[in-house]
Design a protein around this nucleic acid. Sequence first.
DNA 1: CCACTCCTGTACCAAGTGGTACGTGTACCG
DNA 2: CGGTACACGTACCACTTGGTACAGGAGTGG
Lengths: 192, 192
Amino acid sequence: MPGQVREELLSRVVERIAEQGVGALSLRRLAADLGTSHRMLIYHFGSKEGLLVEVVREIERRQRSALAGLEFDPASAPAEAIRSMWRRLAVPALWPYERLFFELYGQALQGHPGTTALLEGVVESWLDLNVELAAGRGVPAEVARTHARLGLAVVRGLLLDLLATGDRAGTDAALEAFAASYEAGLPVPPAR
Amino acid sequence: MPGQVREELLSRVVERIAEQGVGALSLRRLAADLGTSHRMLIYHFGSKEGLLVEVVREIERRQRSALAGLEFDPASAPAEAIRSMWRRLAVPALWPYERLFFELYGQALQGHPGTTALLEGVVESWLDLNVELAAGRGVPAEVARTHARLGLAVVRGLLLDLLATGDRAGTDAALEAFAASYEAGLPVPPAR
DNA sequence: CCACTCCTGTACCAAGTGGTACGTGTACCG
DNA sequence: CGGTACACGTACCACTTGGTACAGGAGTGG
């Protein structure tokens, strides 16, 4: 059982990596920025890939806690649910972590070792959550899955847009157009 | 000025990179795979970054030609437009290039040199196209921009999903749910 | 023949990489 | 006190990296 020093080190590592990206990552530079030696990173994480794995896990953990923290009002319309999700994610303070998420996502798609675990629950876990929530309102599971999938795509797609353009107003408007469509009489279109 | 040898080399480079990703790219390995020496890549592209720039340009070029090739029927509903776009992009033959696109996107978000040019027109050019098309149907520019933004986000978000999960049926259904919402009586909701 | 341009390969370089060997300090526990 | 486990640093290693120097080879035009 490794000490708790590691945990504190990891969070500082994630912070640094969120700023500098993971593509041009070097243990030595990272260690220097953290005021230690690259030997320590190897000591605590075994290898560079081991460190990467831990970073990916941490990012996943944060996603999951963000997901759990959504505290949907089960009675609220889907429109309100997606609005609150967007409100939470679009704030500039999270941009570095979202950039990191998409960078890791891209590397994972290419099979980069250590990152591929990201792909496991990156979609499914969100769908499952929504199925559960929707069941409370009597929505069939298949329909809930499809709409969760769509909502997730909208949010991720608009985040990609926002991170590239910085256009908060434009992306806000697009999300609002999407949310509004759920209030305009078709809360649950047929699944196909 | 450089000969046409370069052009042919570039397309082979892009092909290889689409398969192997750009993250773990090394001039020597790439050259070996291409049956030449890394010296040649430097000769034709000046440097590794120069090669990357060219690859990014090539990807942009393909995106643009895909965009131009969409040949929308101006009279057709937006639902049909987005369906045809998805039908074109979701085919497995394009997956390697889309993986590469998202990998480069991620690197560009982190400011990786040589890739940042990707971000320039990655959103705007699509929006402009849609504004132009929508003008023909009397749709105000602002509304057209917002809905183009949303549609682009849906497609990119679902592509991320598809590349991670491989679930063609699931993503097809989600896109269909989105497209159908345009046929259910709200072709042009207010922009905000 | 020469000269010139384009193209390609071999050999080499300095720099940086991840990883290891080894020694040290520090704290807790007997 | 001694021992032992954790934490940490320095020096080093083999290897790979992007880039360069240099030497041609193939074709063309004079």
